[in-house]
Design a protein around this nucleic acid. Structure first.
Lengths: 198, 198
DNA sequence: ACGGGGAGCTGACATTTGTCACGGCGGACC
DNA sequence: GGTCCGCCGTGACAAATGTCAGCTCCCCGT
């Protein structure tokens, strides 16, 4: 019997996934929680075989929770935002399975069985785009100002933070925007984040 | 037996919801589709008692699909973005149930039974905020430029569209931003949309 | 040694965006 | 009629933003 802890902040979805998994005779959901911290606590308490975590959760997202859980329990991340960069971060955190929500429901159980048997599962489409994706074309400074821009601050704030002239910061941002094919620093920061570069 | 058509673009969620509903002895899912157009077609073909539609779907969103389906079949909207304005639009389209994804999974079946029995269901929390929400503080012109701004165009584009000086458009935008407590026209347009004012 | 090229850094410029003070118009109210 | 007030509309101004040409420094290949 595969014992599973299920974490998703949307009650309806979490309950539905639990119903789906309980249909399988060899899988049982031993705990349901609605945020990342609770997921870590539930894993410590119930010592399940697998933790199925939604990526987007309050207080601690799925990847951060996976890192906190460590290697003792297999973690499968479920997400709606299946971008290459997210996959990279998830794998770096030791995640054993990465399942976009576009995956057919019927396949989830077999994925959990694979993972329980020691295997890994990565959505093939995302893996392909992660592998073919161009390596990061941005320089160190460009990445740095993008990282700070993502916080929402103005150019002035960022410039003060890194002790540079505002013109310099604008220049890095401009260069990054050109490389990424967007027209605003916010778009650039979001895109770089999605690609996993910052 | 309550016959249901289920529409959601995320296979995993749709399948999980189907599993959840099939657990009920008096409910059966007669068709599953993944976009709004297919939902309309499936309702025409299967003549179900209830259509359960996700709000966010490609090609035609849940509310638009509900309008196309008409009054012959009861429609229940399920959504992650449970804002007052969305609720208003949904009710205006003749929707019989409005269920945010934060609803406990166990309650979905009883909601469907209520709706099948001729009742309506509206999440009480959203209904409350929709009723207590301040009425729209924006003027006609402000709403108009916000509507056009939402398309993503620049101030120049909007000004040309409404045959006004760009200064005038900026003024309306500025006024709207002040009233809404935000600092960019994009935020203002998004907020007004969420409130259901445009 | 030396030349080329990339990264870091800067200021000057044009454009875009947001704010302000102002005037005209029309309805509500006395 | 007269006044007040809100909405409509405009242009001037300031700040933020994006683009450009150019500078230095350092690494790398010859």
């Amino acid at each position: 019997m595969i014992r599973v802890v299920l974490a998703d902040d949307e009650d309806l979805i979490r309950g539905a996934l639990a119903a789906l998994l309980e249909l399988e005779s060899d899988i049982t959901v031993v705990a349901q929680v609605s945020d990342g911290d609770a997921a870590v606590a539930a894993v410590a308490e119930f010592a399940p075989d697998i933790a199925v975590l939604d990526l987007e959760m309050p207080r601690r997202d799925g990847v951060a929770a996976a890192r906190a859980i460590g290697a003792g329990t297999a973690v499968v991340i479920v997400t709606r935002h299946a971008r290459p960069g997210v996959l990279r971060r998830a794998l770096a955190a030791g995640v054993r399975g990465f399942v976009p929500k576009t995956t057919p429901a019927a396949r989830l159980a077999s994925i959990l069985r694979d993972v329980h048997g020691g295997g890994r599962y990565v959505d093939s489409e995302i893996a392909a785009s992660a592998l073919t994706a161009d390596s990061c074309p941005l320089t160190g400074r460009e990445l740095e100002v993008l990282r700070l821009t993502r916080g929402g601050g103005s150019v002035q704030d960022v410039a003060q933070e890194v002790h540079l002239a505002h013109g310099t910061v604008r220049n890095y941002l401009s260069s990054a925007m050109t490389k990424l094919g967007v027209t605003s620093r916010h778009d650039a920061a979001r895109k770089a984040w999605e690609e996993g570069w910052i």
